[in-house]
Amino acid sequence: MSGRERPGRARLRHRPAAVALAFLAPALAALLVLRLIPAAMAVVSSLRHTSLVTGETSFVGLENYLTLFGDPAFLQSVRVTLVFSLIVNPLQIAAALALAVLFTRRFAGVRFWRSLVILPIAVPPAVSAAIWSVAYRPDGLLNSVLAVLGIPEQPFLTSPAQALWCLIVLLSWIGVGYWMMFLIAGLQDIPASLYEAAAIDGASAWRRFVHVTLPLLRRPLAFVLVADTVSNFLVFAPVQMLTNGGPEGSTNVTMYDIFTRAYTVGDLNLAQAEVMLLVLVVLAVVAVQFRLLRAGD
């Protein structure tokens, strides 16, 4: 979109930069103070150390990072985050894709049932966590449903083996409908004639899905994969409200670990170093997205 080739445009170039900057000034100030400066502060702060004895802050280079990688709590949190990510992302995307395929078919009440699946996007995360925390109680809704099915009472949030799964179920309830919306938009862009052609060639439903749907859904899928992965790296409210990282650190995901380090342990510098590592991972994931989107264009 270059304006240069448009005739008559010169008349408009009456000190254009000054005009534009006047319009841009409030937003640039906001972005600078509220996003970019804090980010830069985090970088600087992660390279410094505040002595608990003297209260003096000094430059220590990468020492905070080395400390983190020698800290069992941090390593455990990385392990939890890794396991969590490897389960929750494929699960949510598979569920969102399956539901998107289902809800782009035509059947009675499709719009109504689809809107129920999307409904949780209106629920703030703290509210979802509050509702599910009651459902997960030993005498809560889930155990009573299990009792009807003849399954014995489960400990849910108090069990190191089940707590992470409880969070995964809760987060999927929150997120799957949202990601499904993007995939439905992508599915609706695929021309019906392609399916008809494949059907005439005798391709089975599964083969049509693999050879027509999936390749043409690549862009929305890549976007959902990345956006979902990033948002799952930043999960905080449900962890803080349901498990506080426990039991036995089994749900101590990175975001929660950062906040404990900053405000419970009180080592801001170490927490900022962990923030930097998280941001680097997030940016790496976004960079991979651009690769995925560009390849094959």
């Binding site: 640039l28 996003r35 970019l36 400066i37 905080f236 950062i258």
Partner: peptide, 24 residues
């Protein structure tokens, strides 16, 4: 360059910079 700054600012997840911003 200015547009690049705008894009950069939303690539940085807000919750991740909440700690330094809260200090400010």
């Amino acid at each position: 360059v200015l547009f690049g700054l705008v894009v950069l600012s939303f690539l940085i997840p807000f919750d991740a910079i909440a700690i330094p911003l809260a200090t400010l």
